[in-house]
Structure formats: structure tokens, C-alpha cells
Nucleic acid binder design. Structure first.
Length: 570
RNA sequence: CGGGGCAUAGCGCAGCCUGGUAGCGCAUCUGCUUUGGGAGCAGAGGGGCGGGAGUUCGAAUCUCUCUGCCCCGACCA
């Protein structure tokens, strides 16, 4: 491919609307353009990356004996009514009517469609197990699309669905899919981790997420060095401490703490560490009630755990400052569990605290020397918090580490959630009708593009893993328009590289070198060859890998073999 | 949906407070010079200021009202 004939669409300036690195770089490198909120056009370069990812996914899915199909983006309401999701899904499901006033939606996922297909096509156990997949555009009317294609409304997903006669078969296929996902993310050249996950509203029991590790990731993942434990933060249980609560030594005392609101201010004021304080959060309960949630000062609330509590409204909603001051007669920074006349849940970790500090439910005052049982009733101690770095892991696998990740894959064991409501069965070898068991397996293809950039970039632009880079190799000639022999040499190398199977981008624009270098680096092309008259005399070319610190001169005749070796050292 | 912000040329912005008929940088086009890290000079084209209504002799500037987009919170690949 030659730059002069190609819509490179690179931009020098950072678009004002983009905040995250990947979003900025995708716009600047000319991969995408926004059409509407959460809706993007893929430009030629971006599409090449997308196709590279799709190809790897396709090859590995095919290798796992999954069969590719393509289902419609538009789906009839009746199917969704069968599973009850027409009502459950909420506004995220974009609904509309056709000219006959029949209800339709834009497919956010395809459990209903595939299940409908399978129930009419699969009749015998001999056709099972079966895995179907597609790579297709989905639409979810997200409340707030953001970060470019990281969370867009229209996006490209690989979704796969498996059907089984029994649980054992589902387990086997699930294991195959897990391994297939590992192969896919290995081939994509991304640093990732598989974690135990919450299955959310897709339904089912066992589920794993695959996260690309990146500082900017929205999810926290928890794992151990021995590799035997890895889970989404939402899922990591903390235990009731086994230690005995120390006996009270101090007596309760109300202390004036003017202007001290946050835990760090209060702990500094009292010259104690944050773990000697309690923080009390106020959330909405059922109906109009409020519920207090008490955590150790240095701990972080886990929303998913809080939502599971009987008295807490789901989804979790924090009480506003106005409601708190109206109902509790004090402001947010002064709340504590003592004489708090609403239901209170306290985290396990607070059960072994004594002589602690907490808000006095009066502006400008805190209590110190507070003790459970003596100064206030024992609350319900439950698991409410996020585990912290360095704490012992569940199952004795050593201390946990915490990293941030971007969820790019999710596999579920669905069980019979859809097959039951949609009555999918077939006959087993005894002629008995069996309700099929399902699994489903998603990969966010378009999100992977953004995640790969979040994980692999520098101050000059994208640094693509070589398997998904839009081009393998950039050829940058210096002053080609001035030298016929340079032109001939460049074109010869260009043809040779193409013949050798490289996807080559020849920068044949009449630009100054700096402009070409900057664009090729912004685009993140893994290998760059610079050709000049000077090097021609020496019989060399100048080579630089995208993440190399320095360029090097190599014999012209060896360059393609050199790059091939570098790509594939074996 | 709650909170905050923005909307002026392809991109980034100024002008708005104190109304007088739109400007800067980059990009684009032409010419000359230049050519190993986003060139220099000269010239050119391009918008009527998100839409609608109002106030006014006159509105990018003031008022009202829509709409779109971005950011922070609850959803998910």
C-alpha cells in the first residue's frame, strides 16, 4: 500500500473531545471517526486492525470446532418476550416498530436468536455438542458511551453459543473455550489475565472474564503470584477475622473536630492511623428508608456486595448530602454508627476493632474510645469491602495483588436459562426428550483495538503488537523524488517485501522526513526501513523497530530475512 | 437519569462581559526556496458563528427555547 493513494487521515493535534490515550491515538492515527455519540466509522487503517483481530479469533474458533454463522442485527420482540428479557432489559435495548407496528430491537446479544435456531434445527443428540459463533455488530444503548470504541453503543463482538446434552459436556466445551481464549489473547500479543467473574444479567453460574492489563482499566482484578487464584474484585470474598476483639481500654469521649470531615483529616487530627477509624456511608434502602454502611477507615466499599444485602436498594444509590442533613441532622463528614437510628451493616473487619474513632452525628464532633456492645449495639457484621493489596488470598494462595484491567472477553456457563424458557430440547439415545444446556462466549473485537493501544503506546503514538498491526513494515524513502536510482531501489525493495508476504506501507508522499517518521510512529508500524542515496552507496538500509531506541544500518540484501527472524525468532 | 462543561473553517482555539456584520495557529491549494525528525517566504480558497424564536436600526455577542457533544456517577464485550 502506498500512502499517497491511501486515506491516512493522521492528525497532528489532539482532538478536544477525547480524554483517554487510546481514544486520542485512534483519532490521531486515523483509525476511527465519530458519527454520533458511541457510534464510529472505521477508516481504512482502523479496519485493517479490526480484520487482523477478527482473523485470529476466527482461526482459533474454527480450530475449536465452532461453526461460523451470521445472525441478523434486527430481532423480533416476540423472541425476547419468550425469555422475559423484553421487559427485563431496560432502555439499553434499542426498540422500534416496523410499518406493521410489530416490535423489534437492535440486537445487543443473540441468545434468543441462536436458541430459536437450534430448537428448530437440532433434533438429535448425534448433532451435539454444537458450538456456533459469529462476528457481528451489536448495539447497546449505553447510558453513557465513553472512551471512543472502548465503550461504544455500536460495537463489534464475537459471540459464541454452545449446546449440550449434559453438564459434563458443557464443562468440557467450557474448558476448550477457556483454552481457545488463551490462545487468542496470546496470539494477539496482549498481556492479559483470566479471572473468576460475576455472571451479571446474562445469567448462569460459572463465568470467567479475560482482562487486558492496563493502568487505565475500569475493572480491578485480584490475583496471586502462584497463579491459582484470580478474580474480579467484585467477586473476592473477605473473611470474618479470627482474632479476638481487644477489650475496651478507653472510655467514650466526644471531641470537637471543627472542619475535619474526611478519614484522612480525622485520623491526622487524632494522630492515629486510618485503620483506627470508622467511616459510615449512607445508602438508600427499600422504599424511602436509609441504611448505614460501616467500614474501617482505610477500606473501600464493594458495591456488588452491598447490593446483595436485604435492606439495601439495588442498584446501590448513595444518599445525597441534602437527604443526609435532613434525615440525620448532620453532614456527610460527621456521621457515625453511635445512636444512628437506621439499620446498620458493618464490615467483618470492624468486628475486631475497639477504642475506635467515628463521627458523632453532630457537625464538628467525633467520638473517640468507642466500643461495640458497650457504646452501641453490635451491628450485623457482613462482607462489604474490597480486598486490599497484600491481604491473604482466599484458599491460602499467598498475598493478593491488585491490577487494573479492561474486560475484553467473557465466558459463561448458562445452564438452562434460555433453553428452558424457549423450550429447546432434543432426543437422547434412549429417545427421551432432554432440555439442552448452554454456554456462551463473548469477545469484544472493537474494544480489543482500544485495549491494545491502552496497553501499548508511547509518547509518539501506538506500538502495535505485530500480529494486529495495520502494516508489518513501513518503507520511508528520503528525497526519493530527486533520485531516479533511489526510486528504482525503493520500488524494488517494496515489491520484494510484498512478494515475501509482508503487508508494506510505502510512504511515497513528497514530504519531509520528519513528517513521514512522525506519521509512521503514530501509526505504530512495527518495523521501519529508511532508504536514502547515502545508504544506497553503502549497500545498506537503515532499520528501526517501533520500540527500538536506536536505528541500525543493515545490509540491504539481508533486511527482509532479518525482519522475518525478528518477528518469529524460532 | 442526576451533576458539571462545551458548541465559531477539516483540526485546535480567540472574539461574547462592554452588540456595529468574523479572526489566529495548524491543515488544504499555487509558486519559489528547502529536504535525515512535524520547514521558510509569498499568495489563495474555505465558515457567517449548532437549530428556532425574541429584543434591537443592527446579534457570534443580550434573552428564551430546543438539539448535539464531552466529562464525573449507576451498566457491560
Amino acid at each position: 500500500m502506498e500512502t499517497a493513494q491511501r486515506l491516512l487521515a493522521t492528525q497532528r493535534q489532539i482532538p478536544a473531545d477525547a480524554e483517554t490515550v487510546s481514544h486520542q491515538l485512534m483519532l490521531r492515527a486515523g483509525l476511527i471517526r465519530q458519527l454520533a455519540s458511541g457510534v464510529y466509522t472505521w477508516l481504512p487503517t482502523g479496519l485493517k486492525v479490526l480484520r487482523n483481530i477478527e482473523q485470529i479469533v476466527r482461526e482459533e474458533m474454527d480450530a475449536a470446532k465452532a461453526q461460523e454463522i451470521l445472525m441478523p442485527g434486527v430481532q423480533p420482540a416476540e423472541l425476547w418476550e419468550e425469555t422475559g428479557r423484553w421487559d427485563q432489559f431496560g432502555p439499553e435495548l434499542l426498540r422500534f416498530s416496523d410499518r406493521h407496528d410489530r416490535g423489534f430491537c437492535l440486537g445487543p446479544t443473540h441468545e434468543e436468536v441462536i436458541t430459536d435456531l437450534v430448537r428448530s434445527e437440532i433434533r438429535s443428540y448425534k448433532q451435539l455438542p454444537a458450538i456456533f459463533y459469529q462476528i457481528q455488530t451489536k448495539f447497546r444503548d449505553e447510558i453513557r458511551p465513553r472512551f471512543g470504541v472502548m465503550r461504544s453503543r455500536e460495537f463489534i463482538m464475537k459471540d459464541a453459543y454452545s449446546f449440550h446434552l449434559d453438564e459434563k459436556s458443557l464443562q468440557e466445551t467450557y474448558e476448550v473455550m477457556y483454552q481457545t481464549y488463551e490462545k487468542i489473547f496470546d496470539r494477539l500479543g496482549l498481556e492479559y489475565r483470566a479471572v473468576v467473574a460475576d455472571s451479571g444479567n446474562i445469567g448462569g453460574d460459572t463465568s470467567h472474564e479475560f482482562h487486558v492489563l492496563a493502568e487505565s482499566g475500569e475493572d480491578q482484578i485480584v490475583f496471586t503470584n502462584n497463579g491459582n487464584f484470580a478474580a474480579n474484585m467484585e467477586m473476592v470474598a473477605t473473611q470474618m477475622p479470627s482474632a479476638q476483639r481487644p477489650s475496651p481500654e478507653a472510655s467514650i469521649e466526644k471531641v470537637s473536630t471543627p472542619g475535619k470531615h474526611s478519614i484522612s483529616e480525622v485520623s491526622t487530627f487524632f494522630s492515629v492511623s486510618e485503620d483506627k477509624t470508622l467511616k459510615t456511608l449512607i445508602v438508600h434502602g427499600e422504599k424511602d428508608s436509609l441504611v448505614g454502611i460501616v467500614l474501617r477507615g482505610d477500606h473501600e466499599l464493594n458495591r456488588v456486595k452491598a447490593e446483595r444485602l436485604d435492606k439495601v436498594r439495588s442498584p446501590l444509590k448513595f444518599a445525597s448530602a441534602e437527604i443526609i442533613s435532613k434525615e440525620l441532622k448532620c453532614d456527610v463528614g460527621s456521621i457515625g454508627p453511635v445512636k444512628l437510628n437506621i439499620p446498620v451493616y458493618a464490615d467483618y473487619s470492624t468486628s475486631v476493632m475497639s477504642d475506635f474513632i467515628c463521627g458523632a452525628n453532630e457537625n464538628g464532633f467525633h467520638y473517640k474510645g468507642v466500643n461495640w456492645g458497650r457504646d452501641l449495639p453490635e451491628p450485623d457484621f457482613v462482607d462489604l469491602r474490597n480486598i486490599s493489596q497484600g491481604e491473604p488470598s482466599p484458599g491460602d494462595n499467598g498475598p493478593v495483588k491488585i491490577a487494573r484491567g479492561i474486560e475484553v472477553g467473557h465466558i459463561f456457563q448458562l445452564g438452562t436459562k434460555y433453553s428452558e424458557s424457549m423450550k429447546v430440547s432434543c432426543l437422547d439415545e434412549n429417545g427421551k426428550s432432554i432440555t439442552l444446556i448452554m454456554g456462551c462466549y463473548g469477545i469484544g473485537i472493537s474494544r480489543i483495538v482500544a485495549a491494545a493501544i491502552e496497553q501499548n503506546h508511547d509518547d509518539r503514538g501506538i506500538v502495535w503488537p505485530k500480529s494486529i498491526a495495520p502494516y508489518d513494515l513501513a518503507i520511508v524513502p528520503i528525497n526519493m523524488h530527486k533520485s531516479k536510482r533511489l526510486y528504482d531501489s525503493v520500488m524494488e525493495l517494496y515489491q520484494q517485501a510484498k512478494a515475501a508476504g509482508f503487508d508494506v506501507l510505502l510512504d511515497n508522499r513528497k514530504e519531509r522526513p520528519g513528517v513521514m517518521f512522525a506519521d509512521m510512529e503514530l501509526l505504530g508500524i512495527p518495523h521501519r526501513i529508511v532508504l536514502s542515496d547515502k545508504a544506497l552507496d553503502a549497500g545498506t538500509v537503515e532499520y528501526k523497530g517501533r520500540s527500538d531506541a536506536e536505528s541500525r544500518d543493515l545490509p540491504r540484501d539481508d533486511i527482509l530475512a532479518f525482519i522475518r527472524d525478528r518477528n518469529d525468532p524460532d
